[in-house]
Simulated scan of single mutants.
Amino acid sequence: MPGPPTNPRATGGETAALVTQVMDELIRLLARDAAHPPAETCEEADARRRALVRLSVLAGVKQAVRRLEDQAARTAAANGAGYPEIGQAVSMSRQGARRRWPGLITNGRHRPHPHPTPRSP
């Protein structure tokens, strides 16, 4: 069985830190473009609005990342990866990967199921 996936560019923690930076910038830009509150709003209402815009953007990002993960898992399986490797790539067990993407790999042969069952958000 092939070894663990490698990424010579960044560790998981470094990747997470970089994504956090990028997301903070994206949220800042999107929040700037969001409807501006009326002039008479207080600082607390403005903080609430900013937090809700941030939450909305992050929910959309989570949905997009989920779709990209599903696509990458299908591609990995189509190219011979098994549940142990797929699980390791996303820091979960083989069983966790099997629960996340049921039917992705069947009969010991690495053939992707057309549409893995999405997990509830």
Rank of each mutant, 00 (worst) to 15 (best):
P2G: 00
E14T: 03
P112S: 09
A76K: 04
R98C: 00
A51C: 03
R48Y: 11
G82A: 07
S93E: 15
P5C: 13
R28N: 05
I86P: 03
E44K: 07
L58A: 12
M92R: 08
L104Q: 02
L55R: 13
A16P: 01
R28L: 09
P8S: 11
L58F: 03
R54H: 15
R74P: 15
P116Y: 15
S91K: 08
A89Q: 06
H110I: 05
G60T: 04
I105W: 08
G3P: 03
E14G: 10
A89C: 12
R119K: 15
R49H: 05
P2S: 14
R74I: 05
N7H: 08
R9Y: 04
E25S: 12
M92S: 13
E44I: 13
D33E: 06
P102L: 07
V53G: 00
A39C: 00
G82V: 03
A81S: 14
I105M: 09
C42D: 10
R54A: 05
A47M: 05
R50Q: 08
W101R: 05
L55K: 08
G60F: 09
I105T: 04
R67N: 06
V90Y: 06
A72P: 00
G103D: 03
V53K: 04
R74Q: 10
P102G: 02
L18C: 11
G108V: 05
A16G: 03
A17W: 04
G96E: 09
T75C: 06
T6N: 01
M23S: 12
P118A: 11
A47N: 05
L18V: 07
T15P: 15
L30G: 08
Q21I: 07
D70Q: 11
T117L: 14
T15C: 09
G103H: 05
D70P: 04
L104C: 03
S56D: 09
G13H: 11
T6I: 09
L104R: 00
G108A: 01
E14S: 07
S120N: 14
R67I: 14
A97I: 09
D24K: 10
V90P: 00
S93A: 09
L104A: 03
P114Q: 04
R50P: 01
Q21C: 15
A47K: 08
A59C: 15
H113N: 13
Q21L: 11
E25W: 08
D33W: 00
P8A: 06
A10L: 12
M92V: 10
A59W: 02
P84H: 02
R48S: 14
L30Y: 03
V65F: 05
L18S: 08
R100K: 06
Q63R: 11
A47H: 04
G80S: 05
R98N: 10
L68N: 15
R99W: 01
G103Y: 11
D24R: 07
G108R: 12
T20E: 14
R48F: 10
K62H: 13
T106Y: 04
R109P: 01
P118W: 06
R111I: 10
Y83W: 01
R49I: 04
L29I: 09
A17E: 02
Q63A: 12
E40D: 12
G82N: 02
A81Y: 00
N107M: 10
R99L: 15
R119G: 10
R98G: 05
I27S: 01
A10P: 06
A81T: 06
R98I: 09
P8C: 01
